[in-house]
């Protein structure tokens, strides 16, 4: 397992969330969340389906507006900045979607070129091609460059989705259910890739999952979201040795004890 090169700077909080609330109609999803993510750290947010895990990272990326609370990302309060400032901030945030969200009407090459051509207009055609090839190489899928998203497997789509975010060299990565719907071998490859991204680019990440293997491999710290609040926080061992009954079924299901 990759461990060397890990450098977490506990003095530098890149994502600081305070008293975050979000409701959808009568459904109060997040009920006062506090979370700090430090430079170079991978934080896994664990929780049952529908507990607001994805809502949390969508708020961080500015895709949803919270009802209350502050979300400070790389020194910017995403709830208070202008749309233009948010666009600039988003260039430093990578978001890997649960279903990869590759643009169906574009080839793999065009998918990867899209953020570069729009946001790095100073780059020459050759530099763009080089960056695309490098990003594909980083996820081990150079041969798919001219394929369409529909021709790729679930795991390949996931990795291309990650490559598309890596091409902008983000400081923060947000992964939404990175191993959902994948077989164990492909899941393991994705887990290794997430870890590799952290070590290679010194990114800070939030990984949303209910896959404990993914949590154990990729996470430096776990935060367990239940009923709209974090009920446990710490390393994998600390969280699952706490004796919390609510987490027991989670563990039992994932590791078949």
């Amino acid at each position: 397992m990759i461990k060397e090169g890990l450098h977490i700077d506990r003095t530098k909080c890149v994502i600081c969330i305070r008293d975050l609330h979000k409701s959808f109609g009568p459904n109060h999803v997040l009920r006062g969340i506090d979370l700090d993510v430090y430079q170079g750290e991978n934080v896994v947010v664990l929780g049952r389906s529908g507990t607001g895990k994805s809502v949390l990272i969508k708020i961080i990326a500015g895709l949803l507006k919270p009802d209350k609370g502050t979300v400070n990302v790389l020194g910017n309060d995403v709830t208070a900045i202008s749309y233009r400032e948010l666009e600039q901030l988003r260039l430093r945030i990578g978001f890997s979607f649960q279903n990869s969200a590759l643009y169906d009407s574009m080839t793999v090459r065009e998918n990867l070129e899209f953020p570069l051509l729009r946001n790095s207009k100073h780059l020459s055609r050759g530099q763009v091609t080089e960056a695309v090839e490098k990003a594909l190489d980083a996820v081990g899928l150079s041969q798919t460059i001219n394929q369409w998203p529909a021709e790729l497997s679930g795991g390949q789509r996931k990795r291309i989705g990650i490559a598309r975010t890596l091409i902008m060299q983000p400081a923060i990565m947000l992964y939404d259910e990175p191993t959902a719907g994948l077989d164990p071998i492909t899941s393991m490859e994705i887990n290794e890739l997430i870890k590799e991204v952290q070590l290679k680019f010194n990114t800070s990440s939030i990984i949303i999952t209910h896959d404990l293997t993914c949590a154990k491999i990729t996470g430096d710290r776990l935060a367990v979201l239940l009923d709209g609040r974090f009920v446990q926080e710490g390393s994998f061992e600390q969280v699952f040795s706490s004796g919390d009954e609510r987490l027991k079924s989670f563990y039992d299901y994932n590791f078949i004890t």
């Binding site: 988003r90 978001f95 979607f97 969200a101 643009y103 946001n119 902008m168």
Partner: peptide
């Protein structure tokens, strides 16, 4: 519609494209 339900519109938004 299909771009919306498969989060492609969100993906565009987070890649700093309006």
């Amino acid at each position: 519609g299909s771009m919306k339900v498969t989060e492609q519109i969100d993906a565009m938004e987070v890649s700093a494209t309006n």
